[in-house]
C-alpha cells in the first residue's frame, strides 16, 4: 500500500455516504433498540419493559433451534462451496476463447432474483413435475422434499451450492489469474504434483480473495431468507426455518414489535461480532503484505 497523506478534508468526500447510510442504517437501528425495550400496543400506548423481550427471546426454544439450524446450514454450505469453488476455478482455462463464455455462464445464478432461484429449484426438485425429483424417484429412491425434513435439507443445500459456488469460483479465478506464470514453471521444474501446486503455490496466494469469499458467504448464508421461504416455506414443520424467516414472521407477520426488535438486536450483535473478527484478519493481511 502506497503512502497516503493525512487530510481531514477527505471527510467531505465521505459525507454523502455517511448521510445516506445514517438515514438507512443508524436511524433504523436506533429505532429497533427503542422498540426492543417496550411493549408497544400502538404508538400512543406503550410501556417500558426493560430487558423482558431479551430474556424471552434468549429462552425461546424456537429461537435457539433456529439459531442452531442457521449455524449448521451456514457451516455446511461453506464447507461445500469453498473447496468446490476452488476446484471449479482451477478448471477454468486462463487464456482460451471459451473463458469469457464460461465466466458468464458461471455468473448466471448470481443474477437471478432470489425468489426465482427458489422457484427454479421448486420446479426442478418436485417429485411430480421436477426433472431432478422424477429422476431420483425413477432410480428407486423415494424422494420428496416437501414431506421429508432430511430431503428438504439436502435440497436446500444443493440449491445454495448451485446459487453461490459461482461467487467463490469467480473470486478464486480472479486470484489465480494474478499468480505470475514463473511460479507455475518453477513448480513444474521441481516436478510438483497438481496437489502440491495447489498447496504450496496457489492456496497461499489465494488467501486474500478466500477471506473475502468466506466472509461474504458466511454473512449471506447467515441472513438467508428468500430461497427457503419460496422452496420449503420453512417446513416440513419448522425444520428449515432459519433466523431471518423466523424474524420476518414475527416482525411483519404477527407485528410483534417488541420481541421482534429484541430478536433483531441479538441477531445484529452476532453479525457485528463475526464481521469484526473477519475485518481484523483482512486488515492484518493488508499490513503483512504491503
Amino acid at each position: 500500500m502506497s503512502y497516503k497523506p493525512q487530510n481531514n478534508r477527505a471527510w467531505l468526500g465521505v459525507l454523502p455516504v455517511l448521510l445516506i447510510v445514517a438515514f438507512s442504517a443508524v436511524v433504523p437501528l436506533m429505532t429497533v433498540i427503542n422498540y426492543s425495550v417496550q411493549d408497544i400496543l400502538d404508538f400512543n400506548t406503550r410501556f417500558f419493559v426493560g430487558f423482558e423481550w431479551y430474556v424471552q427471546t434468549l429462552n425461546d426454544e424456537r429461537f435457539i433451534e433456529a439459531f442452531g439450524r442457521q449455524l449448521a446450514f451456514s457451516f455446511t454450505v461453506l464447507a461445500l462451496e469453498i473447496p468446490l469453488g476452488i476446484a471449479v476455478a482451477r478448471g477454468i482455462p486462463k487464456n482460451s476463447r471459451l473463458t469469457p463464455l464460461i465466466l458468464i455462464v458461471l455468473a448466471l445464478p448470481l443474477l437471478i432474483p432470489w425468489n426465482v432461484v427458489g422457484t427454479i429449484w421448486q420446479i426442478f426438485a418436485r417429485s411430480d413435475i421436477g426433472l431432478l425429483g422424477v429422476a431420483i424417484n425413477a432410480m428407486g429412491i423415494s424422494y420428496n422434499y416437501t414431506s421429508e425434513p432430511l430431503h428438504a435439507w439436502l435440497t436446500l443445500v444443493a440449491m445454495d451450492v448451485w446459487h453461490w459456488t459461482s461467487l467463490v469460483a469467480l473470486l478464486a479465478f480472479a486470484g489465480l489469474t494474478a499468480i505470475p506464470q514463473p511460479y507455475y514453471q518453477a513448480a513444474e521444474l521441481d516436478g510438483a504434483s497438481s496437489w502440491q501446486v495447489l498447496r504450496y503455490v496457489e492456496l497461499p496466494r489465494l488467501r486474500g480473495v478466500l477471506i473475502i469469499a468466506v466472509l461474504l458467504r458466511l454473512m449471506d448464508s447467515f441472513m438467508i431468507y428468500t430461497e427457503p421461504f419460496v422452496l420449503t416455506g420453512g417446513g416440513p414443520g419448522n425444520t428449515t426455518t432459519f433466523l431471518s424467516q423466523y424474524l420476518a414472521t414475527m416482525a411483519v407477520g404477527q407485528f410483534d414489535l417488541g420481541p421482534a426488535a429484541a430478536f433483531s438486536v441479538i441477531y445484529f450483535l452476532f453479525i457485528l461480532l463475526f464481521c469484526w473478527l473477519f475485518y481484523q484478519s483482512v486488515v492484518k493481511r493488508d499490513e503483512e503484505t504491503p
Binding site: 497516503k4 497523506p5 493525512q6 487530510n7 481531514n8 478534508r9 477527505a10 471527510w11 465521505v14 455516504v17 455517511l18 447510510v21 438507512s24 442504517a25 436511524v27 433504523p28 437501528l29 429505532t31 429497533v32 422498540y35 466472509l215 454473512m219 447467515f222 441472513m223 431468507y225 433466523l243 431471518s244 424467516q245 424474524l247 420476518a248 416482525a251 411483519v252 414489535l257 421482534a260 426488535a261 433483531s264 441477531y267 445484529f268 453479525i271 457485528l272 463475526f274 464481521c275 469484526w276 475485518y279 486488515v283
Partner: peptide, 28 residues
C-alpha cells in the same frame, strides 16, 4: 487517497451494513 480521522472505523462500519440481515431492518 487519504488517511483521515476515523477512516478505518468508518470503513468497518460501512462493511457491517453490507453484512447486516435485511430482516433486522424490516420493522423500522
Amino acid at each position: 487517497r487519504y488517511r483521515f480521522l476515523g477512516d478505518k472505523q468508518l470503513f468497518f462500519w460501512l462493511l457491517t451494513n453490507r453484512m447486516a440481515p435485511p430482516a433486522v431492518f424490516l420493522l423500522p
